[in-house]
Amino acid sequence: MNLIKATSRLVILTIAFSSAARADAVSKQNFEAKIGYCQDCHGPSGQGYRGFYPIPRLAGQQTEYLENQLRAFVEHRRTNNIMFNVAHNLSPTMIRALATNFRHFNPRPLGGAPKNLVAAGKKIFEDGVPSANIVACAACHGPDATGKDEFPRLAGQIYPYVVKTLSNWGKERGQIPGKPDTSAVMQPVVHSLTKSQIEAVAAYVSYLR
């Protein structure tokens, strides 16, 4: 009697597990190997890294933003050969899992930006540049620069990455004219920002925690 009960339980459990495994195609082993791959460049706690090219901070980043960017690399909406190569063979389930992973990391910002620019950057971030019709960054990215959904967190983002990104916006983002994405929102802003304003804002957000 007990043997029959135990056997039927085992059968039920086996069915339950195998269907769960099918629904979630990402195995723990594959997921951890892929996370390690992210961490090799973006840092063990996703804090970013200053390589020859600046490698952005992922820690605390919005899940929707990361998902959208990983797709943008694959769809060539965002130009980046390295990240295209990294992302092109990821399943949608894996993309979702990776994008969620860094949400709750909270390392100290890497620092290193020119401190004398922070005050000017804070003003632009909070008030915009009325004379040039530039909206306050805080309007979309939030008063703490933590972002929301597809609007990225900027707090703690490494300085050279923000400078590079704002300087190259139109060459890197929204590269498929017939398929506009959230990046279009930034286009008029980056068009109006001067080099020194970009550096100031980048310095300010890089120290936010």
């Binding site: 190997a33 892929k34 791959y37 090799d40 890294y49 390589g51 020859f52 090219y53 490698i55 390295i82």
Partner: peptide, 10 residues
Amino acid sequence: NTAACVVCHG
């Protein structure tokens, strides 16, 4: 899962 050397070394 092997990173591209170029990213850091140029």
